[in-house]
């Protein structure tokens, strides 16, 4: 089973089918966020700070950082944003841009092993991004489209994903450092988008042996109560093999779907994280009916993260 290790200077996160699902917080992204875009462009990163801390607090194990602002110096802004976020939190980052110069500027200042988001199967992109990924010892998100666009045929998409993995190997990037994005289409416009994604994810896991990630919000584009769809999608995708997602951990429906999926896949051992989050208490440490006993001699209460004794 592929294990993709991403790190900051002081913390490691492992993406893999036998690991808790990795939520990569999506909020640090000015696309469609007018105020954030304006602030970042003018060097005001207060909202970025709040978004970073709130997402980590809500359970994001990694953060995606994007600085795609129209008519702005994206490489410079992306590099500053990464330095700022790394000074605030120790979670590893995904460096998100479709501009190669911005990816490089981000990699240059990044401390640890980053996840580069992303490379497509287009020849010129592969030849520019993969050497960067190799030089900085990073991992990379692979988008399975090529010069001809995104195929609706899962076999074609699979072939492109396979080709990207092989090209990465040619560049000295191991298979486990390629994380494939299945490219989920909006279900509101393409009725087979769900089934296709689940089938594709299973093949990526079983036949290509890679980890996977995806934006988990695109699927619900154009529908009401998007969080409900996003949560159900994530549960079904995780069952099909998805091992990480770029999504919003502050959305309760998404957070619960992921946590419950970890319980159901056996990757939340003894359901300990689930229990810690949802035990119907009287606060930990409080005495009274319904409160869990405090194991003072062992320095605490609540559910241990591994069996004690």
């Amino acid at each position: 089973m592929a294990r993709t290790v991403i790190s900051s200077a002081t913390r490691e996160v492992v993406i893999g089918g036998d690991q808790p699902f990795v939520i990569i917080g999506e909020r640090i992204n000015p696309t469609g966020r007018k105020i954030l875009a304006e602030e970042m462009k003018n060097g005001d990163f207060s909202r970025v700070e709040r978004d970073a801390l709130a997402q980590v607090e809500a359970g994001a194990q990694m953060l995606d950082v994007n600085a795609g602002i129209p008519l702005a110096d994206e490489p410079a802004i992306l590099a500053s944003t990464i330095q700022l976020v790394q000074s605030l939190t120790d979670v590893p980052l995904s460096i998100d841009s479709s501009i190669v110069e911005a990816l490089e500027a981000g990699l240059r200042v990044y401390k640890g092993k980053a996840l580069v988001n992303s490379v497509t199967g287009e020849d010129d992109r592969l030849e520019r991004v993969l050497p960067l990924v190799r030089r900085y010892g990073a991992a990379v998100v692979a988008i399975p489209n090529d010069e001809t666009g995104i195929s609706f045929d899962i076999d074609v998409r699979f072939a492109v994903a396979k080709m990207i993995v092989e090209r990465a190997l040619d560049h000295g990037i191991p298979r486990e450092d390629v994380v494939v994005d299945p490219l989920v289409m909006p279900i509101g416009a393409a009725p087979s988008a769900g089934r296709d994604a689940f089938r594709f994810l299973a093949r990526l896991r079983d036949e290509l042996g890679v980890n996977t990630t995806c934006g988990a919000s695109n699927v619900s584009f154009g529908l009401p109560n998007r969080e409900g769809i996003n949560g159900a999608f994530l549960s079904m995708a995780i069952a099909s093999g998805l091992t990480s997602a770029i999504t919003n951990p502050l959305a309760e429906g998404v957070r619960q779907a992921v946590m419950a999926s970890d319980v159901l896949t056996g990757n939340d051992r003894d359901a300990s994280r689930w229990i810690r989050a949802f035990r119907p208490v009287t606060a930990v440490g409080e005495v009274g009916p319904g409160a869990r006993r405090v194991n003072a001699r062992r320095g605490g209460g609540g559910a241990p993260s591994s069996p004690v004794g």
């Binding site: 909006p186 509101g188 416009a189 584009f221 154009g222 529908l223 009401p224």
Partner: peptide, 11 residues
């Protein structure tokens, strides 16, 4: 535009 109808309905 007003968020009463959604994409599948418009299609």
């Amino acid at each position: 535009r007003d968020g009463i109808l959604f994409v599948p309905e418009v299609l």
